[in-house]
Structure formats: structure tokens, C-alpha cells
Design a protein around this nucleic acid. Structure first.
Lengths: 187, 187
DNA sequence: TTTGGCATGTAATCCGTTACATGATTAG
DNA sequence: CTAATCATGTAACGGATTACATGCCAAA
């Protein structure tokens, strides 16, 4: 079998966050796409089936609600679900196999045209910059707020900052290397 | 459809490397598992079917060889294949959706037990250290060698070093943060 | 009235891994 | 002799994305 499915645990994790009320599938999707968007991604085709199977296993429980005709299913984590979540959180992190397309394209760079590689690196640099900016704002917002993030969330934030910074520096440095290559006129 | 398949291009890239003679599927597999192991991964179930379809499309050509009874198929890139490779190398890098299991587990850290999180971070730190060491040795070997790596390969090396370093620093820093948490006795 | 956000879902399809099958050769 | 390495492949399965289907509500 391939990697064990992680979608259910992301859902359990979000529903288990302290001080979180029951959420609908739609809200779970939104939460993934906003608060943990730079850490994790899930599509509808994963979320809704997972919600169904989690209910069936008794790890979450549903409460249907009709808010002015608009149907809505609110899910909450059960004690059993919280147990499973804790077990997963304690289980070893599964290491993903590397698939670094940018690095691979650079590795084959001798066969490629330079302007394209430059474009790739510029795009990467811009993404790193944007990511870094986002993390820094987050951190600043946290520092200003009397209610601080948990140390755990701060650790994830620091990861984003550290890695974005490294990524950004590397991209800038590499762009300079490419610019200095023979056959390129200096700007 | 999902992401466009990249296996064929990895194969084309390896076969297209300047100064590379025809290789067998087995050798391609080995090359992936050694020289680009920290960048890319492929399994047999991907490689052999890809070789077949690449031959059928005329992007690579086969030459069967029987070396003392042991059958062996040697593949070489064709001009058409090189064209496709160049086109792919120039096409925008497809951004993978984030799936950072370690970061996610830390994010949900309030629900987890601390010793487990510490184990996760230690494992991560060790991996980062090992990766960094490997990159540094590579770089040292290169500096000592009169025939230097291409600037492109050096760029990928620098990426490995930069990111491993950042990863390592972050892990060490985070372990200290966790160690200082209430409920933990200082070592 | 039409656009966009809320809301739930399913089906097709594909990428990729695991696991297995098969067999020759070489080093210990 | 037997274990490891060389060597080529296939089948089953599962995880994940895309794309589509459906419908309500509010605001422009």
C-alpha cells in the first residue's frame, strides 16, 4: 500500500483544536485553505468522503442544521477521535520521497536555455519573498496581540521564516551566478 | 488530469546528460537512487513502463545487448527526445501542493504528547545533519577535483546546503523551545 | 438578474508505490 | 552452495486531483 491516508487526521486535528466549535465540511475546507494553507492542502474529493468514513467509525459526530433552508452538517470530534488523533501525532513522521522539480531542472541546466532557468529562479524567489512576508506579518501580529500563539504554532512560524529566508537567499545568489555566466551580458 | 507525468523527463534528462553513454533501465534506476537521490525518486513501476512508451514515441531508441547471456536493453536519447527535454526544462516549474507532515504535527502540538514531538524533531534534525554533511563532502570533493561541476550542479548543491542548514538550525532552536516548556525538567 | 459565496457531494482518471515474478551472474 | 547484485518487468491497489453536478442565499 502507499502512504497511509492523512486526510482524516488533518480533519481530526482541526476539529480537535482547543476552543473550536463544530465545523462543516465547507468550513474545514476553508480552514485548510487559509490558516494552514502553507503547510497542507486537501481537495473536496478527499474531504467529503473522509468526513463520511470518520462518522461511520465514530471518530467524529454529525449534527445536521438547517439554517433558513440551507442545509449544513456540523462535525465535532469524539473522545475516540481525539485518541486516534493523539496516536497519529505521536507516530513517526512519514518521510516523503523527494520530487524537487526546480532543482531537477537546474541540475539538467546544461541542456536548457538560460533565460528559462532565470525565469524559474525568479518565480521561485518571488514565491519565497511572498511566503516570508506572510510569515513575518503573522509574527508581528502575534507580538502585538496580548493573546500569544501557542509555542507550537510559533515553532511552525519560525520554520516558515527560516526556510523562506534560506530559499530566498539561495535564489538571489543563484540568479547572480547565472547572470555572471559567459554568454550573458551584465545588466 | 493530475500533474503531468515527470518520469519520462527525468529519464530523458539522465540520458541527455553530456558525455553519457546509453544506459539500461537498471542503470537509470541506480543513477536516480544515487546521484540525484536527494532531489528525485522513481520506482521500478514507473521507470520500465516509461521506457517503453518513450521508445514507442521515438524519444529514445533501444539497442538490445546480450552480454554473456544476460539480456540488457540500452537506451539512448534521440534528437526528438532532446527537443522534448529542452521544452520541458523551459516550461514553468509546477508547484507541488504543500504536505508538511512534521510541521502539521507540530501545529497540532497542543493535542500531542511532548516526548513524541521531541522525537520527531530529533529525527528531523538528524536527517538535516546527515543531508548537510553529504552536501558538504560533495562540495569538498568538487573543490579538490580539477574538473569542476557545471555551475548548474553547483547551484543545486548550494540549495542543499542552504536548506539543510536552515532546517538544522530551526530544529535545534525548536528543541530548545520545547525543552524550556513548563512540565519539562532541564537536562 | 446575475454574480459570487455558501454548501455538499460524486465519478473519472491518473500518478505512484508496493509487491511480486523471473532469471542470470558473480563473489564469498 | 548461496547470497548478493544485475536485470526486466507486471498487477493490484490506493491516494489525490480535476471536473462536474446540484442548489440556496445575498448583494450589486
Amino acid at each position: 500500500m502507499a502512504r497511509t491516508q492523512r486526510t482524516p487526521f488533518v480533519i481530526l486535528g482541526l476539529l480537535g483544536l482547543s476552543g473550536s466549535q463544530p465545523r462543516s465540511g465547507y468550513e474545514i475546507r476553508k480552514a485548510i485553505d487559509t490558516v494552514i494553507s502553507s503547510i497542507w492542502h486537501e481537495s473536496n474529493g478527499q474531504i467529503y468522503p473522509a468526513l463520511k468514513s470518520l462518522s461511520l467509525s465514530g471518530l467524529i459526530k454529525v449534527r445536521s442544521e438547517a439554517k433558513r433552508g440551507r442545509r449544513k452538517k456540523l462535525y465535532a470530534i469524539t473522545p475516540k477521535g481525539r485518541g486516534q488523533l493523539r496516536a497519529w501525532l505521536a507516530s513517526p513522521v512519514e518521510i516523503g520521497r523527494p520530487r524537487e522539480e526546480l532543482i531537477l531542472k537546474l541540475f539538467f541546466g546544461s541542456e536548457a536555455d538560460l533565460p528559462a532557468l532565470v525565469r524559474h529562479l525568479e518565480a521561485h524567489r518571488d514565491r519565497a519573498r511572498a511566503g516570508l512576508e506572510k510569515c513575518r506579518e503573522w509574527e508581528k501580529g502575534n507580538a502585538a496581540n496580548p493573546i500569544r500563539y501557542s509555542p507550537f504554532v510559533q515553532i511552525t512560524l519560525r520554520a516558515g521564516i527560516s526556510l523562506s529566508e534560506a530559499s530566498l537567499r539561495w535564489a538571489e545568489e543563484s540568479l547572480q551566478t547565472l547572470a555572471a555566466l559567459p554568454g550573458r551580458t551584465k545588466p
